[in-house]
Nucleic acid binder design. Structure first.
Length: 867
DNA sequence: ATGTACGACTCAGAAAGGTGGTA
DNA sequence: CTACCACCTTTCTGAGTCGTACA
């Protein structure tokens, strides 16, 4: 059985994980039922004075029992579509203009002459290159038809391994729960961390860690060697090599599936796919996490490069300098226009104007008529732009539509890439247009001119043997062509504002490559669940360490765990002055007595973090100590940086880094709150519970948004309406009384005759009251969420499986909590009673669930679960 | 071995753009 | 019916994290 090579799920199946599996299975014995086992709330001892982090329950720390349940059997029974693709040999297919999935792609392979005509030259060349592969096509085609048919097979039939389910259900045994709780649950009433079992567990920790590490290095080395070697092989030989490699996979990859982020109608069930004996090999080469390492990410990669913004069209409108019109060259005019249309609020910003002037002056030249910015009047250009804007607005809808279609047509070919034979959406295929740099917060480079990017700035990453994308600007050419199969970017260029940084074009979040790393992220967070007890014990011990570095590491880890702070890398003066945990300055943390610390700093994106928390006494004392003899501006953790911190974390858990705590904290807060707060009620009430949990997560992660301009207007509008409705409600009640008494025609305030019977009036009364209630609720949530951004956590921090399981258990349609845009790919679910569907079960179906994680988008349960 | 530069990836909020309800 | 608006989605691109290559 093939395992999706690059699927994160193999991590669990890999030999490197076997030891930890042992550990897991020990724990699994004592695993409790869903709710408690997933209670990972770890904000326990953080109380807040400002409501930022208000939870104060005791965090129960229950090691992850079922992480393990992913045992060898799991996943063997089914394969998602992504499995299909990877286990087959890789073929190159043209990036087709059409996005219809299987059916169309099938046609592609039929080499029907008409089709051929529409295939870009590039693709045809490709086909020729891969002539040897063609032979296999018919079989594969047939195979994929069969696969599609699988869709119609009842789910139950597709899950032959019901033994798995038996195993899972034993996890729900309540007796186990008790055992578990007494044995492993760490109670953390505020300042206490039960370090009891940490010693027992610690010894086990090292094993998986070292084994994984060892494995990683060896593999990496091997990989690196292979790659380099590859580069030196003549093309003819390389091809052979590729073919050999892939032919070992026996089957030919076709375009089996479109991962099409943007088509709600697109439904494709992931499928069970049996296959030969390839799995072991694939498995062993693809165990570890994929991000940042030297792992091979793809075998074939086909795409059409990037699209550039249209060239600048000079308008000839003149800037006034000392009230006199000045003629500018197109280049100078372009930049002047950028300045003319920029939001008025920047006109007060001296740094903005200075930066702009410096850059513009370079274009004007020292001896230009224009000698300073303050004597320039850009209003003619501004006005011209307004007129243009209005013109655009005035266009008829047909014109707009036509324009849009034209744009779509132009862009279509850039929208897709084919990765290992699977058509995937490309993310940001449009090269960033030139403009003025607007950073976040007080950015020292604000107002600088971000110059235009040319093809000669752009490096392309693409499969060998794949035609190089045509450069879209005639007469120019790409900077370079790379074939880095360990990297997922399709194109990159140097950021003109930060020349030591790059901009990358990569696949859309809906792509399987992105989905995989997403999944790995959540798996890592889950793994942290079973290590957290030890980690907490370790840092608690560290609070009083004589070694100041160790002490700082302990306190920093505590903050990261409790407050979900970011790691805090060093920044240079060219960036906005923001901090994270390791870069906290002493003035960012104020001791307020009674063990209370006040945090106040600007974090990522210059978002203010303000939070007062009660901490454990040793932490409080340590902070006082770290602050002693320092001055504002000095680092609180002067012996610490992120690499030291992360190095330390890696000793506690393989691959652990600071950011994992955020994911962990977020996902398990969600899970915990959902489990604790969901009561019987209608869908709307349950949705509120979800939203409330989501809000708490957003607060923990400090995801803020600015209050919308018309927020207060909207609120008062709602208020008005409510008052209005209440008035009519009163009227209705009077009407009702009269109707009952007199049974005579009624005259309402507007003079119209109304002749309603009491029943009708009653009905109206109920309707109106319901309307009022709903409005009041809406207003309340609106006010409640005006500064809280829910989206970021939903998309980046909350394991979708938690939401799916909860929705299923409580019969909440998934689209109530995830808007339709997040709900896209149909997946297979374990055929079990929905009441038993827990996160853990979903986790134990990695091959179906990995579809779920593909781009965080999923939808629909199998019919038998949907009822 | 240690520190630094930098590459490549995730995460972030704002703005733009689309949609559908309603005044 | 149309204009407006609230809400939602998508796009955009800046700002982090973290690993590794290199000095």
């Amino acid at each position: 059985m093939a395992v999706e090579a690059s699927d994160g799920s193999v991590t669990f199946k890999s030999s490197s994980a076997s030891k930890s599996n042992q550990l897991y299975s020990e724990m699994r014995k004592s695993t409790s039922h869903s709710h408690d086992e997933l209670s990972y709330k770890n904000t326990s001892d953080v109380s807040s004075s400002n409501g930022q982090t208000s939870s104060s329950q005791n965090g129960k720390v229950v090691p992850s029992a079922k992480a393990s349940a992913v045992e060898s059997s799991v996943g063997n029974t089914k394969a998602s579509t992504s499995n299909l693709k990877t286990q087959r040999n890789k073929d190159l297919i043209n990036v087709n203009e059409e996005n219809n999935s299987t059916k169309h792609l099938k046609e592609d392979r039929c080499e029907d002459s008409e089709e051929e005509d529409s295939i870009p030259l590039s693709a045809i060349k490709m086909k020729m290159n891969n002539g040897n592969v063609k032979k296999a096509t018919p079989d594969v085609l047939k195979k994929s038809y069969e696969d599609s048919d699988d869709d119609d097979i009842p789910l139950s039939a597709r899950f032959p391994k019901n033994t798995n389910l038996g195993k899972y259900s034993c996890n729900f045994d309540d007796s186990n729960k008790q055992e578990m709780t007494s044995m492993l649950s760490v109670k953390r009433p505020l300042d206490k961390i039960d370090s009891l079992h940490s010693s027992g567990k610690k010894s086990k920790l090292s094993d998986p860690a070292s084994s994984i590490n060892a494995k990683q290095t060896t593999m990496k080395d091997a990989k690196a060697e292979e790659e380099e070697e590859d580069d030196d092989i003549p093309i003819s030989r390389r091809r052979n090599k590729l073919v050999n490699k892939s032919s070992s996979l026996k089957k030919l990859t076709n375009v089996t599936k479109v991962n099409k982020g943007a088509a709600p109608s697109f439904k494709k069930k992931s499928k069970l796919k049996k296959s030969g004996n390839k799995s072991k090999h694939v498995k062993s080469t693809k165990l570890q996490s994929s991000s940042g390492d030297g792992q091979k990410k793809w075998t074939t990669l086909v795409h059409n490069g990037v699209i550039f913004p249209p060239p600048y069209k000079p308008h000839g409108v003149k800037v006034l300098y000392k009230a006199k019109p000045v003629t500018l060259t197109p280049e100078q005019e372009e930049v002047a226009t950028m300045f003319a249309v920029v939001d008025a609020k920047y006109m007060q910003n001296e740094i903005f104007k200075d930066n702009f002037w410096n850059d513009w002056r370079k274009l004007l030249g020292e001896n230009h008529v224009i000698q300073n910015l303050k004597d320039c009047d850009f209003t003619p250009i501004y006005d011209w732009c307004q007129v243009e804007k209005d013109k655009k607005k005035q266009m008829s809808s047909e014109e707009k539509k036509a324009l849009k279609e034209q744009k779509m047509k132009q862009e279509e070919k850039y929208m897709w890439a084919i990765v290992d034979g699977v058509k995937e959406k490309v993310g940001n295929f449009r090269v960033e247009p030139p403009g003025l740099f607007i950073g976040r917060g007080e950015h020292p480079k604000i107002g600088k001119v971000k110059r235009r990017i040319h093809p000669s700035d752009v490096s392309i990453n693409i499969g060998k043997y794949t035609p190089i994308p045509e450069c879209p600007i005639p007469g120019e050419s790409w900077k370079e062509i790379k074939h880095k199969d360990t990297r997922i970017w399709l194109a990159k260029w140097r950021d003109p504002i930060n020349p030591n940084k790059s901009k990358h074009v990569s696949l859309d979040p809906s792509s399987s490559l992105k989905g995989q790393s997403d999944k790995e992220k959540y798996e890592k967070a889950r793994m942290l669940k079973s290590y957290i007890g030890n980690i907490r014990a370790a840092y608690t011990e560290g609070f009083t360490s004589k070694d100041i570095t160790k002490q700082q590491i302990a306190v920093a880890t505590y903050f990261i765990d409790k407050l979900a702070l970011r790691a805090g890398n060093e920044k240079d003066d060219e960036e906005a002055d923001t901090v994270g945990c390791c870069t906290l300055k002493i003035e960012n943390v104020t001791a307020q007595g009674h063990n209370k610390l006040k945090f106040d700093f600007l974090g990522k994106d210059s978002i203010k973090y303000e939070n007062t928390v009660e901490v454990e006494l040793p932490v409080y004392n340590a902070i006082l100590k770290f602050q002693k003899d320092k001055h504002p501006g000095d680092d609180l953790f002067d012996k610490l940086d992120t690499s030291k911190l992360n190095a330390h974390l890696k000793e506690l858990m393989p691959n652990l880094t600071a950011k994992v705590f955020r994911t962990f904290n977020a996902s398990f807060t969600l899970d915990d709150m959902l489990n604790k707060e969901t009561k019987d009620g209608d869908v709307a009430e349950k949705k509120d519970v979800y939203q409330h949990a989501n809000k708490q997560v957003a607060i923990i992660c400090n995801h803020q948004r600015s209050v919308s301009k018309n927020h207060s207007a909207q609120i008062s509008k709602l208020n008005e309406k409510i008052v209005e409705l209440q008035a009519s409600l009163r009227e209705l009640k009077i009407d009702l009384k009269r109707a009952r008494k007199e049974n005579s025609p009624l005259t309402s305030s507007d003079g119209k005759k109304r002749n309603l019977n009491p029943e009708a009036i009653e009905k109206k009364i109920t309707q109106t009251s319901a309307k009022i209630e709903k409005m009041q609720r809406d207003m309340h949530t609106k006010e409640d969420l005006k500064t809280v951004a829910l989206g970021t956590s939903k998309i980046n921090y909350l394991d979708p499986r938690i939401s799916v399981a909860w929705c299923k258990r409580h019969e909440v349609p998934i689209e109530k909590v995830w808007t339709s845009s997040l709900v896209m790919i149909t997946i297979d679910f374990p055929p079990i009673d929905k009441n038993q569907l827990t996160v853990e079960i979903l986790l134990d179906f990695p091959l179906s669930v990995c579809s779920l994680l593909k781009g965080r988008k999923l939808c629909c349960f199998p019919p038998e679960l949907d009822q």
